Simulated assay, not measured.
Amino acid sequence: MHLTRFRFNTARVGARRVLSSPHILHAAVMSSFAEIPQPGEDGARVLWRVDRNSRAETYLYLVSPDKPDLTHLVEQAGWPHTGGWQTFDYGGFLSRLATGDQWAFRLTANPVHTVRRNDDEPTKLTAHVGLHHQRDWLLKRQENAGFKVMEKPEERRLAPQDEHELVIQDRRQLSFRKSRESKPVTLVTVTYDGRLQITDADAFRRTLISGLGKAKAYGCGLMTLAEA
């Protein structure tokens, strides 16, 4: 597995075009590989996420079984003469993760649930739009994903529901087309920042390489870690 980071030159028209649509960026990401990667037996797949730390500091993070070549992105949306991208060996890091470890994390996800207005209708996916439901979406998945979000000490809680080391930010409703003739695709994305403890190292490794939730082709599901 590989972890790659690429910085966009947001002053360039090409960067703004690529960042304008998850569909365009998905195509650019998949063009980084000579052959289209297929999910492995362990669930490993291509995952990506855009972090907008500021208007001028926008990064693409990419986790992939194969090593990518982002030359085309550098030429269109980066610094062709002075900048590039960094790819790191992710497998060694994953192998060192252990139950009980604590980490800071960031995850951009598509929090959805299934609804049905009556028994005669099929269920359909609907986005969670409230902060409470978006928070609960993650908390309900943490056990199967091999981690738990850390709880705050009582003296640091600002409200009855402020129990966890978890911040929800960068909530977006995206709308884009896959082609000029297609219907618009609407997507709600949320970025979670917080602290976690690993409860099942094997399950957690699967989460990091296979993603969490839906809309993985459009920049959702990738969780990255940093020292807590």
Score class of each variant (00 low, 15 high):
D120Y: 15
G100Q: 04
H133D: 14
V112G: 03
V167T: 11
P122L: 04
A215V: 07
K178G: 09
R135Q: 08
K148G: 10
F105C: 03
P184R: 00
R180T: 13
Y192R: 06
R206P: 09
P122Y: 07
N144T: 12
H132G: 07
R206A: 11
D119R: 14
K148E: 15
R172D: 07
T207N: 01
S179M: 01
L158T: 12
K214W: 12
E154H: 13
L131R: 15
G211W: 10
S179A: 04
D202Y: 12
R172W: 11
M223Y: 06
E121N: 11
M150N: 12
H132T: 13
L139G: 06
G211P: 09
A109S: 07
N144A: 15
Q197L: 05
R117N: 09
D193V: 09
V129Q: 10
P122C: 02
T224P: 08
V185W: 08
K178W: 09
R171E: 11
R206Q: 12
L196I: 02
R195N: 04
D136Q: 13
Q197G: 06
H132R: 14
N118V: 04
V188K: 15
A215M: 04
R106L: 08
R205H: 06
Q173V: 12
V129R: 14
T224D: 05
H113E: 05
V149S: 00
D119A: 15
R156L: 11
D136C: 07
I198F: 07
H133V: 09
L225W: 02
D202S: 12
Q173M: 13
E143F: 13
E165W: 12
D170S: 03
V129F: 12
H164C: 02
P160A: 00
N144W: 15
R156G: 10
S175G: 07
V188F: 13
A127R: 04
P111N: 01
D119S: 12
N118C: 08
H164F: 11
V115W: 12
T186M: 10
R156P: 07
H133P: 11
L196C: 00
A109W: 07
D162Q: 02
V115Q: 11
Y192M: 07
N144P: 14
G213Q: 06
Q134R: 10
L158P: 08
R171T: 11
S175I: 08
Q102F: 07
L158W: 10
L138K: 04
V167C: 10
V185F: 10
D202Q: 14
R156N: 11
V188A: 15
E154M: 14
L225M: 03
H128S: 03
F105A: 02
D170Y: 05
H164I: 03
H164E: 03
M150F: 09
R157C: 03
E155Q: 13
P122D: 00
M223V: 04
E143H: 15
G146F: 10
Y218E: 00
T199D: 01
E121Q: 09
D193Y: 11
T189F: 08
I198P: 06
E121S: 09
D202L: 10
G194L: 01
K152A: 01
N118F: 09
H113N: 05
A159V: 02
F105S: 05
L166S: 00
K148R: 15
Y218H: 06
G219C: 03
R172E: 05
V188N: 14
L138W: 04
H164P: 06
E181Q: 15
A159F: 07
A145T: 01
Q169S: 12
R177C: 05
G100S: 04
L208Q: 06
